[in-house]
């Protein structure tokens, strides 16, 4: 059973439909106790970092998310929330990874970074097992996590940024696997089946 953190993120429905298509059982919950009964956690995210942190506080999920030992996949803003700090609202985030989440500033690129980009694998991970080189994923974001020690895949928008990362049981993807066609569904399936 997969637990989807239900804290008002904009893409919660899309993530749950993707799991339906994969035939994977899941629950939507904002209760730490219920989530802890699941084998894995998906932490979706669309919206603003500040609103998201406020919701996590309201549902008393912050300590749970930081400390769980279950495999957890943060998607888009979900992954950005792993950072210690976000320039989106200048707020403290979950501090799972010591990095800042920054705003794209390059005058020569489009912001938001919107559309399909290929990624470069920086280290091998089961999350990307069976994904052909040069596969494209769908991105829609104005903020990014810079490359760091935990980056497992990179993409670029005028500058390189973290497309996927892993620290211990925490996995993150900046792109939207639930909207990234076959390659995206494969990433979700890998998280569910082989992580």
């Amino acid at each position: 059973m997969i637990g989807i953190v239900n804290y008002g993120a904009g893409n919660t429905a899309s993530v749950s439909y993707a799991l339906e298509r994969l035939g994977v059982p899941f629950i939507l919950s904002n209760s730490a106790a219920e989530l802890e009964k699941c084998s894995k956690i998906i932490f979706p995210g669309v919206g603003s970092a500040e609103a998201a942190m406020n919701k996590l506080k309201e549902y008393e999920l912050i300590d749970y998310l930081k400390n769980t030992r279950k495999p957890l996949l943060g998607i888009c803003l979900g992954m950005q929330m792993f950072a210690s700090f976000s320039e989106e609202g200048n707020i403290e985030c979950l501090n799972i990874i010591e990095t800042k989440c920054l705003k794209f500033r390059d005058k020569n690129v489009k912001i938001p970074n919107m559309g399909w980009s290929s990624i470069t694998l920086e280290s091998s991970s089961r999350l990307f097992e069976g994904i052909p080189a040069g596969a494209y994923f769908y991105f829609a974001h104005s903020f990014y996590i810079p490359l760091n020690n935990y980056t497992i895949a990179a993409s670029e928008n005028g500058q390189p940024f973290t497309a996927s990362l892993r620290k211990d049981n925490f996995y993150g993807v900046q792109f939207h696997p639930e909207k990234s066609s076959d390659a995206g569904m494969k990433v979700l399936n890998n998280f569910v089946e082989i992580i």
Binding site: G10, V46, S48, L77, P112, A140, S142
Partner: peptide, 8 residues
């Protein structure tokens, strides 16, 4: 944009 993000 404030509620749902500019990307939406």
């Amino acid at each position: 944009a404030k509620n749902f993000g500019s990307q939406a």
